[in-house]
Design a binder for these strands. Structure first.
Lengths: 179, 179
DNA sequence: TTAGGACATATAAATACATACATGTTTATA
DNA sequence: TATAAACATGTATGTATTTATATGTCCTAA
């Protein structure tokens, strides 16, 4: 599917950046739904360059440090927009180790079960708080054609997702405590 | 992390089955949170056998068709239970191509955006219906130490997840239509 | 009785991803 | 002015996963 390809093209379609910058983007809100390590990013950038979808310009930081500032080509924009417009069949639901564990939870004694659930709950509460904090940035819905719109959109989705996960966990903790 | 290893051990901990059966399990409710193709299952079974965590008995179906009925060993049970009890740090949030696409949605004209959202919505509605149908099997919460408990638990989570995804999509469709 | 779908197992090849190795420079701050 | 954190780019190796290739048998329904 080459999804990373399009993630990178999409970022470069907004503004030129370095491989390092792309890695940083993946640690922000976008990282809630897509990410890659630099060991995947740099080879992919080379590939996209070979395909003529991006170009770069070497910039000097300080005295000698070279960085490659990548930007998207016309061909790259076309490829990106073609991908962006595509309506695709639903992907298989994403893997989730914790839920796999809970699938087998009948083999756990009740206190251990509660402990695992509460441990998970705490972490989701922290993530939710973090997401809400990020969301404060948006005072209202950003203009639909601004770069911020997508960020607002998926942050909203991430917050809903965490909220419902927390509900689910709390629900089952309560049930287990009633046993 | 060898998660597939534990998914398989967990299934065999419930009852002996063949590689083919394991594949079928991954196409049921469990598949909402973990799955693997047979090309991954068979080599993993060989590996688990080499590690002494499972054994098999050859059974004949019909006249000649051999099938390997796998069952878990004591060592396998121990390994499985040890894994099951572990409280682990939150995994990174799962990748989601559609949300990645929507992150870049400011580059789409509004009708295309609505079309993509509605296409996605329809598919999630179908999945939700399918999950609800599966859930009818459970008249009430199964006993906490029965094999059905985990199934009920994660089905409930899957239904909540789809419900909130649909809410999110409907919300944004409405917003886009107001533009 | 025959054809199609389900049952059954396996390997090969390619892609995707994570972890580790490798090597530096620049900037802010203590 | 030293030092730690952030900036910056790459490769190597191993693991995980998907898609394709390969080869059958068994069962059910028309």
């Amino acid at each position: 599917m080459r999804t990373l390809k399009y993630a990178i093209l999409g970022l470069l379609n907004n503004e030129p950046m370095t491989g390092y910058d792309i890695g940083k983007e993946f640690s922000k809100d976008l990282g809630e739904f897509w990410n890659a390590k630099h060991s995947q990013i740099y080879p992919e950038l080379k590939k996209l360059f070979d395909e003529g979808l991006i170009v770069y310009e070497i910039q000097i930081s300080g005295e000698i440090l070279e960085k490659k500032m990548y930007s998207i080509t016309e061909e790259g924009k076309e490829a990106f927009l073609k991908w962006l417009k595509q309506a695709e069949p639903l992907e298989p639901t994403p893997k989730d180790v914790f839920r796999l564990r809970m699938y087998f939870s009948n083999h756990l004694d009740v206190p251990t079960r509660i402990h695992l659930l509460e441990h998970q709950l705490l972490q989701h509460q922290e993530r939710l708080q973090h997401l809400r904090k990020n969301n404060e940035r948006h005072q209202s819905i950003p203009p639909h054609d601004s770069v911020d719109f997508g960020d607002y959109f998926i942050l909203d989705g991430a917050i809903l997702r965490e909220t419902v996960t927390i509900q689910w966990l709390e629900n089952f903790i309560q049930y287990c405590k009633s046993l």
